[in-house]
């Protein structure tokens, strides 16, 4: 029946990828402590207003919610460099629709830090006036940061929005997760309205050459390492 197991309350969990120790943060950010580098993927800012343009009036609070979580993660880890790993904006005009408050919040986060915008499929042509550097991908030591995963060793990517579902005794929990096999990783989407793709989808099997990888699942209070094969 139900176990009496104590729950590990861990805000971060160490993932070793291509020999580098990285801290997975409960918020969905990834932190390289030695480099004082923080990575977040798929912010999808202004996804709400993007739908509103097409008549689906989603609550216009997603950018504020996403940036508030990002601000908290940045405050926790005080990085020197922040990488936004692509699809930071939901569409090509999204940055222009960003409410003033969100724009200011973003500027405050950037202040005193290197900020690197990696281009994604939703935001392939990021304007130069965003502040920070715009790049297609970036390599730091043995790691390469790019939006769409290719499966290369040492690659940290996003794009797929991995989520894991674990079921037991007629109940299921579905959460965002990091997916990694120790050589490469796919990051969870960070955006408040970003949905997810099951890690059992064939897209993940292509990147990890099968199902021999781990899901580091973002729970309410801790990150849980669960074999992808255990998820459904």
């Amino acid at each position: 029946m139900t176990s009496a197991m104590p729950i590990a309350h861990r805000e971060t969990r160490t993932l070793t990828i291509a020999g580098v120790d990285l801290a997975a943060d409960l918020s969905g950010a990834l932190v390289w402590r030695e480099e004082r580098l923080l990575v977040v993927s798929d912010l999808h800012l202004e996804k709400g207003s993007s739908f509103a343009m097409r008549g689906v009036l989603l609550p216009p609070y997603d950018s504020a919610a996403t940036l508030a979580r990002l601000a908290a993660a940045i405050a926790r880890h005080d990085p020197r460099t922040v990488i936004a790993l692509g699809d930071s904006f939901h569409d090509g005009e999204a940055h222009q629709r960003l409410p003033v408050a969100a724009r200011e919040a973003l500027a405050a986060l950037r202040r005193g830090r290197d900020w690197i915008w990696i281009a994604g499929n939703h935001d392939p042509a990021l304007p130069r006036d965003l502040g920070g550097t715009v790049a297609g991908s970036i390599a730091v030591g043995p790691l390469t940061f790019r939006h769409e995963p290719t499966g290369a060793r040492g690659e940290i990517a996003g794009h797929l929005h991995p989520k894991a579902r674990v079921a037991a005794r007629g109940r299921a929990v579905e959460r965002r997760c990091f997916a990694t096999d120790g050589d490469r990783a796919v990051m969870p989407a960070f955006g408040a309205y970003a949905g997810g793709l099951s890690i059992r989808h064939s897209a993940f099997a292509r990147i990890f050459q099968g199902v021999a990888f781990m899901a580091h699942v973002l729970g309410d209070r801790g990150i849980h390492a669960i074999a992808a094969a255990r998820c459904c």
């Binding site: 029946m1 139900t2 176990s3 197991m5 729950i7 590990a8 674990v166 037991a168 005794r169 007629g170 109940r171 929990v173 959460r175 699942v217 729970g219 309410d220 209070r221 801790g222 849980h224 390492a225 669960i226 074999a227 255990r230």
Partner: peptide, 23 residues
Amino acid sequence: EIGREAVYGEASDALLAEAAEEL
């Protein structure tokens, strides 16, 4: 009904932790 019907009341983290423990 225990074991026959869905059991509620467990925090999501407990379920996740249990799955992790299996490993």
